[in-house]
């Protein structure tokens, strides 16, 4: 069967890795928040779409290339996240899991429908990056390569920040044990705001990357957040590195299922993985938290 030809396998693999890098950027942010405050942010994908629509507006109104708007959107969404934490999420930290789930759920519904009011439910796309790089016979899509590599770079950057810098270490300390961190003189409240801002900025960046590859509408987030769930369940809740590998894995599996079965099956992979993993391993493959 021609599907087993190395060239096709290679193309599927490349496509999967690039998509996976985008998933990883998104899921790592979600897991960062969960790790630090034990809150699953159901509005995470809507923060991503904020980035995508931001890039769309900057492109259509000012003609800014999405890669340029990235520099504006990332800090902007950082502040959105920072103040969301200050005024909303902070109120539900430490309360039962249900409360934070429902509060972020409410936030996501509001954001989606504000998006619908502002942008309608039409599919938008940004025709800024098109065409492909040709390496011999192999065609690799320009927007995907760009988005995939930038996503990878950002994720690795955040990882290094967490590992190497003082602030990053403080974030990890809060993630591991908030009380002990507080005793050691870390301003836990401020760390939480920074963390949420950072995660939001990661989501926003993922949104800009999304906007150069796909068409999107305000309801696009639902698929992504559920893919993120699958990823963090596979990679372990609260585990930054785990979410990275989980994201890459999902991207590659989707590409191969799309190649060997069909696009419709590829769209189902995340849910099937999610449910299977949960039912077999009730706390996830590398679960760290019990509610």
């Amino acid at each position: 069967m021609e599907l087993l030809e190395p060239e096709i396998l290679l193309q599927l693999l490349i496509g999967g890795l690039l998509a996976g890098a985008l998933y990883a950027l998104l899921a790592c942010g979600l897991n960062l928040v969960f790790g630090v405050m034990r809150v699953i942010n159901l509005a995470h994908a809507e923060l991503m779409l904020m980035g995508a629509f931001g890039a769309y507006v900057l492109f259509t109104v000012f003609g800014l290339h999405p890669l340029v708007s990235l520099l504006l959107i990332v800090p902007a969404i950082f502040f959105v996240g920072y103040y969301l934490q200050r005024f909303l999420i902070e109120r539900v930290v430490g309360r039962p899991m249900l409360t934070s789930l429902l509060a972020t759920y409410g936030l996501s519904i509001i954001l989606i429908n504000l998006g619908l009011l502002l942008f309608s439910a039409d599919f938008k796309s940004i025709p800024a990056l098109q065409g492909s790089f040709l390496i011999d016979e192999l065609a690799v899509s320009k927007p995907r390569v760009t988005a995939g590599l930038i996503s990878l770079l950002l994720t690795v950057g955040v990882y290094l920040f967490l590992e190497r810098t003082r602030l990053g270490k403080a974030i990890r300390a809060v993630s591991e044990h908030a009380q002990v961190a507080a005793i050691c003189g870390i301003d836990v409240r401020r760390i939480r705001m920074l963390t949420f801002g950072m995660a939001a900025a990661m989501a926003g960046a993922a949104g800009v990357m999304l906007s150069v590859i796909y068409s999107f509408w305000p309801g696009s987030g639902v698929d992504f957040i559920q893919k993120c769930f699958a990823i963090i369940i596979i990679g372990g809740m609260g585990n930054f590195v785990g979410a990275f590998y989980g994201g890459i894995l999902l991207g590659v599996v989707e590409a191969f299922v799309g190649g060997f079965a069909s696009t419709q099956w590829a769209e189902a992979v995340a849910y099937l993985l999610l449910v299977t993993v949960l039912l077999i391993r009730p706390t996830g493959l590398k679960g760290v938290a019990r509610a």
Binding site: L98, L101, I233, A268, Y271, L274, V275, L278, P282, A291
Partner: peptide, 28 residues
């Protein structure tokens, strides 16, 4: 029996996933 072994967010997410699985089955 399967899902109720899960606690808190895991149960909530599993149910969300099941709803999607239902949609997928109906589609495919």
């Amino acid at each position: 029996f399967l899902t109720l072994r899960l606690r808190g967010p895991y149960f909530a997410i599993a149910m969300l996933g099941l709803n999607e699985v239902g949609r997928i089955v109906a589609t495919l």
